[in-house]
């Protein structure tokens, strides 16, 4: 396990790299690596344990894994009120470079959860090293996300969403994101969409990706709990079946 800071010197990002292990069931024929992209806000804390578990399962399957915190989140530099969506997309780009360098590979897979899925997909548009992209319960529409976490809307300035500041600028940037339109162009990828619940948004996203040439599968893996629900004592959400489904997709279809 190798935790370290990387990226811009003025605003370093925290990352954690773990090497894959060669096991009887693991992938040993060639080195493969995966970048994990967290969700943001309260969902980040709620998902950390699930990411650790996904990380471990991928390592056991032979994958090198790199996960990191976007600027102004987690252990990375920056205060929450300084967070910028464009910078987060740029951070994913930095992390992709870091993974290539640290793992010593020429290509990698990427898994993103919720906003992490959106950020990964947006960053991957310009990258030709991405082999397989897994979008896990992706936020398809930023406006729909805001309507869910801030029902009624009508707020101004910085608001706290379960302890995390969302400035007016950040909310405005999130509101403009719509993967159904934003991913209409870009590198064609092997893409897996894995969700706990099917929805018209997800079907539309699949159609968008197919339209640009992606080879897309959509798996609905019913799973208890919801990322946007919050436990007053900070409980984690660990959707075991989805985590296993992600590992299976990456092992079997790259």
């Amino acid at each position: 396990m190798n935790p370290f800071y990387f990226g811009r010197s003025e605003r370093p990002l925290f990352g954690l790299f773990t090497r894959g292990r060669s096991t009887p069931g693991g992938v040993a024929t060639e080195e493969r690596a995966v970048l994990l992209c967290y969700p943001v806000g309260p969902e980040y804390l709620r998902a950390h344990r699930a990411f650790r578990q996904l990380n471990q399962l991928l390592n056991r399957s032979g994958f090198h894994v790199f996960r990191f915190d976007y600027a102004c989140t987690g252990d990375s530099a920056g205060e929450g009120v300084e967070a910028s969506f464009d910078e987060w997309v740029d951070d994913v780009d930095w992390a992709m470079d870091e993974l290539l360098d640290t793992a010593g590979v020429d290509s990698f897979d990427v898994v993103g959860l919720r906003w992490g899925a959106a950020l990964a997909a947006l960053a991957a548009r310009e990258r030709d090293e991405v082999g397989h992209m897994v979008l896990w319960d992706p936020v398809v529409s930023g406006q729909d996300y805001l309507d869910e976490v801030l029902p009624g809307g009508g707020v101004e300035g910085t608001v706290g969403i379960e302890g995390y500041p969302f400035t007016a600028e950040l909310r405005a940037a999130l509101a403009t994101v719509d993967l159904r339109a934003d991913l209409a162009e870009g590198e064609a990828l092997r893409t897996s969409i894995i969700v706990a619940d099917d929805s018209p948004d997800v079907a539309a996203l699949k159609a968008t990706l197919e339209g640009r040439g992606d080879r897309v599968t959509l798996d609905v893996v019913p799973s208890p709990g919801s990322w946007s629900e919050v436990d007053p004592f900070g409980d984690a959400l660990i959707p075991q079946d989805i985590i296993k489904a992600i590992v299976d997709r990456l092992r079997n279809e790259s």
Binding site: P42, L45, H48, G74, D75, E79, G80, G163, Y164, G234
Partner: peptide
């Protein structure tokens, strides 16, 4: 650590 929350703390309070 608070429970199973990692070192950033609830609401990133430990970082701050």
């Amino acid at each position: 650590n608070s429970g199973i929350l990692h070192r950033v703390g609830a609401s990133r309070l430990y970082v701050r």
